[in-house]
Nucleic acid binder design. Structure first.
Lengths: 398, 398
DNA sequence: GCACTCGCGGAGAGCGCTCTCCATCCGTCG
DNA sequence: CGACGGATGGAGAGCGCTCTCCGCGAGTGC
């Protein structure tokens, strides 16, 4: 019968108000942006808050503010997949979404990465206890790139009291879930990292009038902000460095050509080479995985045993190339100079450490986050994009 | 004046009910677990839902169900930190979390891993555009381990329509934020991965009566479920393999001894070696980073130039050790056999690929998630823990 | 000295949803 | 043939919070 703080559940605004002898509204004012409350009362309220151990209920707040104060970090995958069936399997088993088909790399097509796919990832060979063997998620994190994106996003968000919800969207079903998630108001906007061009997700999000910012420019224009890297410039840096070093028989291992970054790095490289009198550059297409880099290097070596310089479109492939090169008795950089791209952790896992083109992933991810938060603050602000400049990091391999 | 679906904002249950000519309650019944609604009406409601494009508002639902249908994935860091000042630096720079003090390896103490810390991570040397140079986040993702944890968690959660909120908790402030987050009802429970023993977070969560499951047993008992690996057994496997191979002058690079996993792997290794007539095994403490593995290997080689076998407590260190070994002219496994631990992606980034002890991280993470969901379903269920058995994966290095 | 403004706190109306009663209506059994 | 039970749908009360009104008291200008 005393003023017990309603023994059930967590204390509410009401409880605090009672304890402080004021109204709910006043407590709310104090708890949030202190609009205009007498300092004395403020203090009383604050004391009451700590006495009762009050924590505002976010659901209730979100209900009225219509803000979740959360954002989604979405890793979006290939657009190519069997979605003809328009599966209406209701709830339940969505595990079948696995059947995703990657288009198998253009000219490289030695069927390599298909059966032996596990080469790219170390784990989960015959594991089946729920851990994602060949799952999209596992593939994603096999590349150090995504960890860096997460790092950039989280480091930007944390000081602002926000935390990202991690989502993956490699199937149309998953994509719809992402849109639904946003529409349900569980997140105010999305940070989308696409692993493939033609990803329909940005379009879906834009159509639904939801806020998003992309990492990398979408293949077809979408009215959404993005951050990107000047890939061509980076490739130019690599080419010039190899040339400056005196390499004359230079080849390149490109990324998947259906990925804008892969394409741009190749054309940037070829253009620069051509401009310096090397109109023809041997190229084998890889898939940004270490194993594909190995295959590509083997092939390159078979066809051009005398090459003295290689530019791989990312570090993982460069690492694989180095292994193969060494196995074939080539010293690095003595016999063959190798330049990678990204400056990821793989660059240092290599011996000698990789000379590479640095992509400031963390900074780009942070900027992407900033753009999203800006947009949420001013929904009618302009759609802006930021292009980052890469820089060459010279280490031992070239 | 017509039955326009209230042109403002998203359609609500009310709108759907009107469109279907039923009551809100009925629509709710259909949308959720269909308790008992006439099939005909069900169909009508479903049609109305798709016509109106209705999506339930999660905040409203959470408000009454008191469930967020979300869980937090928390990477928790060192307990050791300068929190005397009780830093009230408000928001902003949390980057100082770097000051985190790892005890510098027992006898190793050559001050190595201190200045050259960047060796462990590839990125962000002088980068400052917000991306986390030496941030805790960056450190965390520099190890392939966390990507695997995320993979396991996400792959288990996704088919269940859930997505994890990613949080980090390396400072007491961050820890409080995690607890607050849970108390606000933004997540129903937490999955906690501690990078250090003595982590206070599990205790804080348990004290607050919140649900959680840990990856790895906490140093001091906490009434919380966890999953863990039989580290000793794994180390035994490594020792026996090295011995079986005929190695007789074996040394080991241990993990940080203040981390239970590091400690257990060392003692398991030593015990087995002792049981086989090798009471003394040279050991240098590493920090689970590639660079610390290199340093340790250098030291080991200096003191025991004739060694013919090395067990590194994780793959990253084994990778570093291999580099150093090769630089010193030792062939692997010819002159020196190397065994790693984890079977992470680093094991395949190595040449020859690493023989290693497999920790089924994805499976363990999935199990951890299952335990949490179980607990949320039955809050008064038992506190259970699951210990996984490691297995030896023989590849080229030993 | 009176109306007017302004600062400040309280009352109360929802936000959209779930869920517990009830009211109905049907079929069926005594 | 009347009553009763089960199946079904509707009404309505909140969940905890924010925020718009209002009221009140005190300062201010003419």
């Amino acid at each position: 019968m005393t003023d017990d703080p309603r023994s059930a559940g967590a204390p509410t605004l009401e409880d605090v108000a009672r304890a402080a002898g004021v109204s709910r509204a006043t407590v709310s004012r104090v708890v949030n942006g202190v609009r205009n409350v007498d300092p004395v009362i403020q203090e009383a309220v604050r004391r009451a808050v700590s006495v009762t151990g009050y924590t505002p209920n976010r659901a209730a707040r979100s209900l009225v503010t219509r803000r979740a104060d959360a954002i989604a970090l979405v890793v979006s995958g290939a657009g190519v997949e069997p979605e003809t069936a328009r599966a209406d399997s209701g709830t339940g088993a969505s595990a079948q979404g696995e059947g995703e088909e990657h288009r198998d790399g253009g000219g490289t097509g030695d069927g390599a990465g298909t059966g032996t796919r596990s080469g790219g990832r170390a784990f989960g060979k015959d594991e089946d206890s729920g851990g994602g063997s060949g799952s999209f998620t596992a593939q994603v994190f096999a590349d150090p790139f995504f960890g860096r994106v997460v790092t950039g996003v989280v480091d930007y968000l944390r000081p602002r009291g926000m935390h990202p919800v991690l989502m993956f969207a490699e199937t149309s079903r998953a994509r719809e879930e992402v849109v639904a998630y946003l529409r349900q108001g569980r997140a105010d906007g999305a940070l989308v990292v696409s692993t493939h061009a033609e990803d329909p997700l940005p379009g879906l999000i834009a159509d639904a009038g939801l806020a998003a910012v992309l990492y990398a420019r979408p293949a077809r224009p979408v009215p959404v902000s993005y951050v990107d890297l000047a890939h061509q410039d980076g490739a130019r840096l690599a080419a010039e460095h190899l040339l400056d070093r005196g390499c004359r028989r230079i080849a390149t291992i490109s990324g998947p050509l259906d990925v804008p970054a892969g394409h741009a790095r190749l054309t940037g490289f070829q253009d620069t080479m051509a401009r310096h009198g090397h109109p023809y550059v041997p190229v084998v297409e890889g898939r940004f995985t270490q194993e594909s880099g190995e295959r590509a290097m083997e092939r390159l070596l078979a066809e051009h045993p005398d090459l003295d310089g290689v530019f791989a479109a990312n570090d993982l492939m460069a690492l694989g190339a180095c292994h193969v090169l060494r196995e074939h008795g080539r010293s690095i950089p003595g016999d063959v100079a190798v330049v990678g791209f990204d400056d990821s952790s793989a660059a240092l896992a290599c011996r000698p450490p990789l000379t590479t083109v640095r992509q400031p992933v963390e900074g780009m991810a942070a900027e992407m986050t900033r753009l999203l938060l800006d947009r949420l603050a001013r929904p009618d602000g302009p759609v802006t994009s930021v292009i980052f400049e890469p820089e060459l990091v010279v280490r031992g391999s070239a």
